[in-house]
Design a protein around this nucleic acid. Sequence first.
DNA 1: ACGTTTGTAACTATACTTGTTACGAATGGT
DNA 2: ACCATTCGTAACAAGTATAGTTACAAACGT
Lengths: 138, 138
Amino acid sequence: MTMMAWAGDEPLKSEQVACSVNTNPVVIRRILCALQRARLVVSQTGSAGGSRLARKPGQITLLDIYRAVDAGDLFSLHRQPPNDSCPVGMNIETVLEDVLAEVGQSIERVLAKITIEKVLQAIEPRTSMLRRGRKTVS
Amino acid sequence: MTMMAWAGDEPLKSEQVACSVNTNPVVIRRILCALQRARLVVSQTGSAGGSRLARKPGQITLLDIYRAVDAGDLFSLHRQPPNDSCPVGMNIETVLEDVLAEVGQSIERVLAKITIEKVLQAIEPRTSMLRRGRKTVS
DNA sequence: ACGTTTGTAACTATACTTGTTACGAATGGT
DNA sequence: ACCATTCGTAACAAGTATAGTTACAAACGT
């Protein structure tokens, strides 16, 4: 996402992103699809195709991305349900669910505060001189 | 841990805990070992052996447990390092590390507030009448 | 001395993530 | 209209992580 913000209006090919993260283009496209479903990016097929941000970097938070990509099962409890004959196991789940909900909210509050624009600004000092389509600092 | 708090001074066998969570005793013992290294529980071998809490339930927080059990890599970045030829990928890692650190701290603040005693109290209303060694509510 | 329980290693099974290949559909350039 | 290019997606292989299992030595109480 930061790469796309950095690229501005120019659409990025999955190939380019993949190369940057040392992985396969299809892996990137899979993630891009999720981001597209969440209306965070727009993609286009064809020769001049690629993906770019659907909104300004200041309008996209890490929480948006987290929710778009997260399968929802990051925090889960038992894979095996507890034995009903145990009075503690019987009732612990609801308590733990509350805790996990609190943790989840706490995470989301942090992520909601950070926009792609901020991330971009944090790395720009080191990259601005390489940036195409911008006047260099000289 | 809540089971042990519930059991009080009586040491719990890994077999008992395993049965309650529907898993194998060895799985429990593995976790118990980590908790022991963190000085949260004490275990004893032998015929009257088992594990019990090393401190009072009010002195053990979920953060203690989280740190004892957590392998530390719950939040990690790239498994493949980014390609150095990408100016964004080159610098994004430090920024993302900061974000993850913030998220981690946020989680820990939540967990630090919750003690085993609180968890026990939250489930006690439903289990107190079954409790051995306590006078029943009648 | 004996039965019991922990601690730990070694191995298997299962699930999940990532990587890869393949191909149809959409798009823009010529 | 044709063609190279790129996305979207399915199908499959490979790799990784977790959980479960078996086995056995060491520690402990009676």
